[in-house]
Design a protein around this nucleic acid. Structure first.
Length: 415
DNA sequence: TCTGGGGTCCTAGGACCC
DNA sequence: TCTGGGGTCCTAGGACCC
């Protein structure tokens, strides 16, 4: 861990909304939201009305009647996000990309070249503003946790430097909700104990925290409140799961809904796995009912799979298992497929189809390999002619989904 | 106000093995 | 035969993050 404050956390402000305002100058200074059914990002002008990310579009409109919904420049989001992070790379290769609009960087080894970390932060901010055209906030501190909180405090369009000798002073007056790992539930539980600030959290005995929040969460929060953050910059991590989901409002739990949706989801997941030469052993499905309660069912197979048709079949069995356990539910609002237990996939892997209803699990290697080879050729056609050139579930679904596939891909991390 | 999509990590019980 | 204990894997659910 750095002795000096040399960890940067850089976070683009209201990212999607800022990109839209950059692309269309007539939107600048106006309350806008990216999204539709749900607000994916709100401009600062919209935030002034109380509009927040994750909020239902209808509620946002009530809060701000003149709110303008825009969006759709998905390729630009990716390009401008990448371009911004690349600016940081001019100062250090030790970068941990958290998401499309956010990254940590360790610049301790670059001080002799570029001067103080705070100077680097200011240059990065200016260059992102001048060369990309976007506002970015930066926190500079000795640890990731402090740097991250620093950038949150610095928003919008600012920089906060936490010097090593003022860390606890900085930390202890802040609300617990700013801490990494404190969400709505934990915040509420802490409030019930009269804990509202990080300082109050630090004064609470570790035993009490662990009793209230569990061993892991309680222990972690106690350590962070006392400013012990052992995390280091991780320049590359591999994904541990691949998933896709589809919200559908309110649909009957019938085969004509479930079949095409699962084929489409399996296609998305399996295509991404194959593109990264990975395959997975554990398949998990999630079924959400109309009251938003959700159940999951999973199975761990004896061998990893990445063929679309096989994944769709396994997922379908799991979904019907879940539905059989909830016979009173005849409508669903979401289906999801996730594959975990990922392994590196030999180029010519053997796929094993399984009969889930039988004890016996027969390897049918010829059939499995044939499916995998077929999938590979579909992948190649799509690479040349576009994803829509070959449809699995998307054509059958026959309706516009609220979120285009291009946008979904943005959330993807390096696999 | 009941709302998207892609992820990570933790807990707890049960099965199974040594 | 009964008893004890530890480790690992699997499954389901939940909190959290961006």
């Amino acid at each position: 861990m750095a002795e000096t404050a040399a960890i940067l956390h850089a976070d683009l402000d209201a990212f999607y909304a800022s990109v839209e305002q950059l692309l269309d100058p007539s939107l600048r200074g106006k309350p806008i939201a990216v999204g539709g059914g749900v607000v994916l990002a709100a401009s600062y002008e919209a935030k002034a009305f109380g509009v927040r990310g994750g909020m239902p579009g209808r509620m946002a409109r009530e809060l701000c009647p003149q709110l303008q919904f825009v969006g759709g420049h998905y390729k630009e989001y990716q390009r401008l996000g990448d371009q911004s992070i690349e600016v940081i790379r001019d100062f250090t290769p030790l970068i941990e990309r958290i998401s499309i609009d956010e990254a940590f960087a360790d610049v301790s080894g670059s001080i002799h070249l570029f001067g103080k970390p705070s100077s680097m932060g200011e240059i990065i901010r200016r260059r992102v503003r001048d060369e990309v055209g976007l506002p970015i906030s930066i926190g500079v501190a000795r640890t990731k946790h402090l740097a991250k909180i620093g950038s949150q405090v610095a928003k919008p369009d600012g920089m906060v430097v936490v010097e090593p000798d003022t860390e606890l002073e900085f930390l202890h007056d802040l609300p617990v909700g700013l801490m990494w790992g404190v969400g709505p539930v934990t915040k509420q539980r802490l409030a019930e104990m009269g804990i509202h600030t990080i300082g109050e959290l630090a004064e609470t005995p570790g035993r009490s925290l662990q009793r209230l929040l569990g061993r892991a969460v309680g222990g972690k929060l106690g350590a962070l409140a006392w400013n012990r953050d052992p995390r280091e910059i991780e320049t590359h991590h591999r994904a541990k799961s691949v998933s896709a989901q589809s919200a559908m409002g309110r649909k009957p739990a019938t085969e004509d809904v479930i079949g095409p949706t699962l084929r489409h989801l399996a296609d998305r997941v399996a295509t991404r796995m194959r593109a990264k030469n990975r395959a997975g052993r554990t398949v998990t499905v999630r079924v959400r009912f109309t009251d938003l309660r959700a159940v999951t069912r999973s199975i761990t197979l004896p061998a990893a799979i990445s063929a679309t048709v096989i994944l769709a079949e396994v997922a379908k069995d799991l979904v019907y298992t879940a539905l059989a356990d909830h016979p009173q539910e005849d409508e669903i609002s979401l289906l999801a497929i996730a594959v975990s237990h990922l392994e590196d996939d030999a180029v010519l892997q053997l796929e094993l189809p399984f009969e889930l209803d039988h004890e016996e699990r027969r390897p049918g290697t010829h059939k499995g390999a044939a499916r995998w080879v077929l999938d590979r050729s579909v992948d190649q056609v799509r690479d040349k002619f576009g994803r829509e050139s070959v449809g699995y579930g998307s054509v059958e679904l026959g309706e516009r989904r609220s979120i285009p596939d291009e946008f979904r891909e943005l959330a993807e991390r390096p696999v």
